[in-house]
Design a protein around this nucleic acid. Sequence first.
DNA 1: TTGAAGTCAATGCAGTTGCATGTAAATCAT
DNA 2: ATGATTTACATGCAACTGCATTGACTTCAA
Lengths: 153, 153
Amino acid sequence: MTSKESPPKLSAAVEEAWIAFLRAHRHNMAAVEAEFRAGGYPPLSWYDVLLELKRAQTGLRAVDLERRLLVAQYNVSRLLLRMERAGLIHRTADPADRRGRRLHLTDRGRQLQEEMWPIYAPVIQEQLGAALSDDEARQLTLLLNKLHQEKPC
Amino acid sequence: MTSKESPPKLSAAVEEAWIAFLRAHRHNMAAVEAEFRAGGYPPLSWYDVLLELKRAQTGLRAVDLERRLLVAQYNVSRLLLRMERAGLIHRTADPADRRGRRLHLTDRGRQLQEEMWPIYAPVIQEQLGAALSDDEARQLTLLLNKLHQEKPC
DNA sequence: TTGAAGTCAATGCAGTTGCATGTAAATCAT
DNA sequence: ATGATTTACATGCAACTGCATTGACTTCAA
């Protein structure tokens, strides 16, 4: 999938953007995870699942989460196991495809999502909203979304 | 450090930028790590250390890495342990501060960095360089760098 | 149909990260 | 100079991730 990797040949602008990107991400994630931990809440990965399940009324499958969250299959599998053990989700047999199971939020899961959002949102605001105008945020979205568009062959 | 987290109140633009940011990062990191693994090389975190040590001729301390790489102290500590075991770095007593040790690249460490860059650079180019013009890359850098500036109190 | 190929999910094992805490040395306040 | 605080680093333990493989089921082709 990757080209032949011989001459590095990166423009300084690209390299700097890459560095800025990595640093910004680490900084932001540290802030988010710290807030969740400080409040005694589980990590962001759990929240992501809770939110996806909440949004999709229809019972999602693990493979749907995998694609939406860009998380590896085995990590989804085990994350769901832990969340089921914690009473946040439950899984029901899928009549249409007996390989997989449908995922559902429990009341406790739904409640947790609702508790975590008021922790999460202010961090987003602090980290991103406070630093950028809405216009800049839109610019950022546009630039970032260019990064994973399908390229023409 | 965080405000009082009561009303979420995020603009749609900010929320979308946040999502785009997280997705772009997962996408990019998956590509980078996949390339390193495919070549039989260690993960990006190892490369980061190798590069920092190469750039800083003077023996860095673990705490310097912690700050430059935004990695937690205990992770730096254990990453260095693993890299030392792998023969990539060595640590010498610091005459000026006997709590810590100075870090140095071994020949093997330096060689590994030089081998990994030709894997890494093309991924950066693919993920970021191919999608953005230099001008856009500079815009992105500016926007991202706003995210972790010290804010005026 | 039916057997090959593909898809959905789980798991053993090793590597890595997070949390809490510990130890030693430096620094600071008095 | 000396006890309290801070700084640098390490580590036990639990949680999480990555890799490779497996099992179960579905789909596709002939």
